[in-house]
Simulated assay, not measured.
Amino acid sequence: MKIVMIEPINISTEKREEYKKKFAEKGHELITYSERAASDAEMIERAEDSEIMIIANQPLSANVINSCPELKMISVAFTGYDHIDMEACRENDILVSNSSGYANQAVAELVFGLTIDLMRNLKACDKATRESKTRAGLIGSELAGKNFGIIGFGSIGQKTAKIAKAFGCNLLVDNHKEHAIGKELGVEYLDIDEVMARSDIISLHVPLKESTEGLIDGQKIDLMKEDAILINTARGPVVDSEALAAALNNDKIAGAGIDVFEMEPPIPEDHPLLNAKNTVLAPHVAFATEEAFLKRAEIVFANIENWLDGQPQNVVS
């Protein structure tokens, strides 16, 4: 079968060649590209006669899917798949597998990078030090003893909870079915409004779907404490950026650490969070570590191998 990696997935040339050889030995052809396609037309040119496609987080439209009549399987080098037209996949009987789990550790760790940066004023500390100033006005807060709210208690939410517990936080989780890990960590399950109102730190870990788009709107943000911070490493559209920026600029909340936006970076110059006060912004980097990329590649190609063997895994369609 013809397998096309339609965009790079951040593995070395040596690793790509290793996978090419492995599939060639089984009678399959793996074609890879080192840069993203610039348009749907270029994506179609690359993949129109492929039977298996590998894609990361580049949007995959119905136009491209419908133009690939031989396509039978898509292995997504990403946890989320809201960038893929799943209806077109269903209509064309295309199986889609994702790479859930590859970046759990990476994302959870960045949550605390953003949190500590905000709580200990690291950006301002760096600036003050370089300008020969002192710590005046830069006294921060500790994580220990704080209420750490988690919205979305899947794999990444649970990993985040473990780290928060190690810091000595009290764990508040929005209404979820109870998990064994929740009992082990002493999680308190509350409705989302209570989590928003009682938390000192709120970390978002929900997928993007109809029910979560705009979930954290102005009303939810208004529930937050004035000294609370919001961390979003989930999906940009889960948060109303205009409402969040207004709350930050009016000192309604203390800060926000944002890794995801309504679009993939670079974000436009007029994005409301770019000039909002007390923010730490990152260009969708939470998942991006060397270790995570290696895990991701292993899952991506295992998905394909298992599908070829008639035992598909990580199926999302």
Results as ranks from 00 to 15, higher is better:
residue 3 I to V: 07
residue 6 I to M: 14
residue 6 I to L: 11
residue 6 I to A: 09
residue 10 N to A: 15
residue 10 N to R: 14
residue 11 I to F: 07
residue 11 I to H: 04
residue 12 S to V: 06
residue 14 E to I: 14
residue 16 R to I: 12
residue 17 E to G: 14
residue 17 E to A: 05
residue 19 Y to T: 02
residue 21 K to Q: 13
residue 22 K to F: 01
residue 29 E to I: 09
residue 29 E to H: 13
residue 30 L to C: 11
residue 31 I to E: 15
residue 32 T to F: 11
residue 34 S to P: 09
residue 36 R to T: 03
residue 40 D to L: 07
residue 40 D to C: 06
residue 43 M to V: 02
residue 45 E to W: 00
residue 47 A to D: 05
residue 49 D to G: 11
residue 50 S to A: 15
residue 54 I to G: 02
residue 57 N to G: 01
residue 60 L to Y: 08
residue 60 L to G: 01
residue 61 S to V: 00
residue 62 A to Y: 03
residue 67 S to F: 02
residue 68 C to Q: 03
residue 69 P to F: 04
residue 72 K to G: 14
residue 72 K to S: 12
residue 74 I to H: 04
residue 77 A to F: 00
residue 80 G to N: 03
residue 81 Y to P: 10
residue 89 C to P: 05
residue 89 C to S: 05
residue 91 E to I: 00
residue 92 N to R: 02
residue 93 D to V: 03
residue 94 I to G: 08
residue 101 G to T: 07
residue 101 G to Q: 09
residue 105 Q to T: 13
residue 106 A to W: 01
residue 107 V to M: 04
residue 108 A to E: 09
residue 110 L to Q: 06
residue 118 L to T: 01
residue 122 L to M: 13
residue 122 L to P: 05
residue 122 L to Q: 04
residue 122 L to Y: 08
residue 123 K to D: 11
residue 124 A to T: 08
residue 126 D to A: 14
residue 135 R to Y: 12
residue 136 A to H: 15
residue 136 A to R: 15
residue 139 I to M: 15
residue 142 E to V: 05
residue 144 A to L: 04
residue 147 N to G: 10
residue 147 N to H: 14
residue 151 I to D: 05
residue 153 F to V: 04
residue 159 K to A: 13
residue 161 A to D: 09
residue 162 K to P: 04
residue 163 I to K: 02
residue 163 I to E: 12
residue 164 A to F: 10
residue 169 C to P: 03
residue 170 N to V: 11
residue 170 N to H: 15
residue 171 L to G: 09
residue 177 K to I: 13
residue 178 E to A: 03
residue 178 E to K: 08
residue 179 H to S: 15
residue 182 G to H: 08
residue 184 E to L: 13
residue 184 E to R: 15
residue 184 E to N: 13
residue 187 V to S: 06
residue 190 L to Y: 04
residue 199 S to W: 06
residue 203 S to K: 13
residue 208 L to G: 04
residue 208 L to Y: 04
residue 209 K to R: 12
residue 211 S to Q: 13
residue 213 E to H: 14
residue 213 E to C: 11
residue 214 G to C: 10
residue 216 I to H: 02
residue 216 I to P: 03
residue 217 D to I: 02
residue 217 D to H: 01
residue 219 Q to D: 12
residue 219 Q to F: 00
residue 225 K to I: 06
residue 227 D to G: 12
residue 228 A to C: 13
residue 228 A to M: 13
residue 228 A to Y: 10
residue 230 L to A: 02
residue 232 N to S: 02
residue 238 V to F: 06
residue 239 V to T: 08
residue 243 A to N: 07
residue 244 L to H: 01
residue 247 A to S: 12
residue 248 L to Y: 08
residue 249 N to R: 10
residue 250 N to H: 13
residue 251 D to I: 07
residue 253 I to M: 09
residue 253 I to W: 08
residue 254 A to Y: 10
residue 254 A to P: 14
residue 254 A to C: 11
residue 257 G to N: 01
residue 258 I to H: 02
residue 261 F to Y: 15
residue 263 M to N: 13
residue 267 I to N: 06
residue 267 I to A: 02
residue 267 I to V: 12
residue 278 N to P: 14
residue 279 T to L: 08
residue 281 L to M: 10
residue 282 A to R: 03
residue 282 A to G: 00
residue 284 H to M: 03
residue 285 V to K: 01
residue 285 V to F: 00
residue 289 T to I: 00
residue 291 E to V: 10
residue 293 F to P: 05
residue 297 A to Y: 03
residue 299 I to L: 05
residue 300 V to C: 06
residue 305 E to K: 10
residue 308 L to Y: 05
residue 310 G to N: 09
residue 311 Q to W: 09
residue 317 S to P: 06
